[in-house]
C-alpha cells in the first residue's frame, strides 16, 4: 500500500480545549501509516462565524489555507473537525464553481505570493479511515477489540450537511460511524439523538436550548444502553462534554455520559492506553467506564 500523505489542518480547538484530540489523531494516523504534515501558517477556518461578518473574507482565509497546502505539494488536506471540513470545502466549492470569485480571491492572495489552484481535496479523518485506510486494513491494526463496548454514534451536523458541499453519505441515515465502530469490535446502539445538533455555533445566544438538547442526547444514549457517545467533531465534543455539568442541572435524572473523540475510540482498539490518547483530559471522566468495559488499563 502506497504511503498516504496529508496536509494536516488541525483547527483552533486542537491547539487548546481539545488538545487531546490532536494527540489521538497523530498517534493513530502514524500507526495506520498516514503521514500528517501540519500546514505551516494555517489560520482558523472561520468556524461558521466569520461569514456572518464578511462573506468574502470567509472564503479568502480558507483559499489561503488550501493554497498553502497546494504550494507545499499536497493534493489532500485532512481535518478532524466537522466545521473545519465544511468551511474548507465550502470555500473550495465556491471557488471552483465561480470563476469571478476565484479571480478576485487570487488577486488578494497574489499579494502574498500565493495562488488557489483547486487541486487539493479536503477530507475528514472519518472518511480517510473508511476510504483511504479501508475497513480491512483498519481491522488488521486492531490489538484490543472493543468487545462489549456499547457506542452511541453522534455525527454532528457539519460532516453531513449541506450535502451539496459535503456529499459523502446520505444525511438522513449515515452509516460511516457505525461501520468504523463495528470494525473496531464495538456494538452500535441506536438512539434518537444520533443526528442531533450540539448547538455549538450559537451556544452563547441559545445556551439554554443547547444545554437541554445535549442533556437529552446523554440521557437517551444512557437509556439505549450506551457506555459512551463517540463523535467525529471536537465542537460536538466540547458541547457534550465541557457543558455536561451545566446540562445536568436541567435534569433530575443522572445524565452522566462519557464522550469520546473518534480517534480515541480507534486508538483504544489499536492498543493505546487511555492516557496516551488523552482520555484523562475530559470533563466527564471516561476512565472508570473504560476499565469496567474493556479492563486492562489502570483507571486510577
Amino acid at each position: 500500500m502506497a504511503s498516504l500523505r496529508y496536509a494536516f489542518f488541525p483547527g483552533c480547538t486542537l491547539e487548546s480545549a481539545a488538545s487531546e484530540l490532536k494527540t489521538a489523531t497523530e498517534l493513530t494516523c502514524s500507526a495506520l501509516g498516514m503521514k500528517l504534515n501540519e500546514i505551516e501558517g494555517w489560520t482558523c477556518c472561520g468556524a461558521a462565524q466569520v461569514q456572518d461578518v464578511d462573506d468574502f473574507l470567509g472564503v479568502a482565509i480558507n483559499a489561503r489555507n488550501i493554497a498553502l497546502a497546494e504550494q507545499a505539494g499536497y493534493d489532500k488536506i485532512l481535518t478532524v473537525c466537522n466545521t473545519c471540513t465544511l468551511m474548507l470545502r465550502t470555500a473550495k466549492k465556491r471557488l471552483d464553481e465561480d470563476a469571478a470569485l476565484k479571480e478576485k480571491v487570487n488577486e488578494a492572495l497574489a499579494e502574498s505570493g500565493l495562488e488557489y489552484k483547486g487541486t487539493c481535496e479536503i477530507t475528514h479523518y472519518l472518511w480517510a479511515l473508511k476510504d483511504d485506510i479501508g475497513i480491512d486494513n483498519l481491522k488488521a491494526h486492531i490489538r484490543v477489540p472493543l468487545t462489549g463496548l456499547h457506542v452511541a454514534n453522534y455525527y454532528g451536523c457539519h460532516i453531513l450537511m449541506p450535502p451539496s458541499v459535503m456529499g459523502y453519505e446520505n444525511p438522513r441515515n449515515p452509516q460511516s460511524m457505525e461501520t468504523i465502530a463495528e470494525a473496531l469490535g464495538a456494538t452500535n446502539v441506536d438512539f434518537e439523538q444520533r443526528l442531533a445538533c450540539c448547538g455549538f455555533h450559537s451556544i452563547y445566544p441559545a445556551e439554554q436550548e443547547a444545554l437541554t438538547s445535549n442533556g437529552v442526547s446523554c440521557l437517551t444514549a444512557r437509556e439505549a444502553g450506551a457506555d459512551c457517545i463517540v463523535t467525529p467533531c471536537p465542537l460536538c465534543h466540547m458541547a457534550l462534554d465541557m457543558w455536561q455539568p451545566d446540562s445536568q442541572k436541567k435534569f433530575t435524572e443522572d445524565i452522566t455520559m462519557p464522550i469520546l473523540h473518534l480517534p480515541q475510540l480507534v486508538g483504544l482498539a489499536m492498543g493505546f492506553s487511555p492516557q496516551e490518547l488523552g482520555i484523562d483530559h475530559h470533563i466527564i471522566n471516561a476512565l472508570p467506564m473504560i476499565k469496567r468495559v474493556l479492563g486492562g488499563w489502570d483507571a486510577s
Binding site: L86, C197, H201, P205
Partner: peptide, 11 residues
Amino acid sequence: WKCIHCQQCTT
C-alpha cells in the same frame, strides 16, 4: 442570532 447554522433547513 439563535440560528445554529446546523444546515438542516438548507438540506
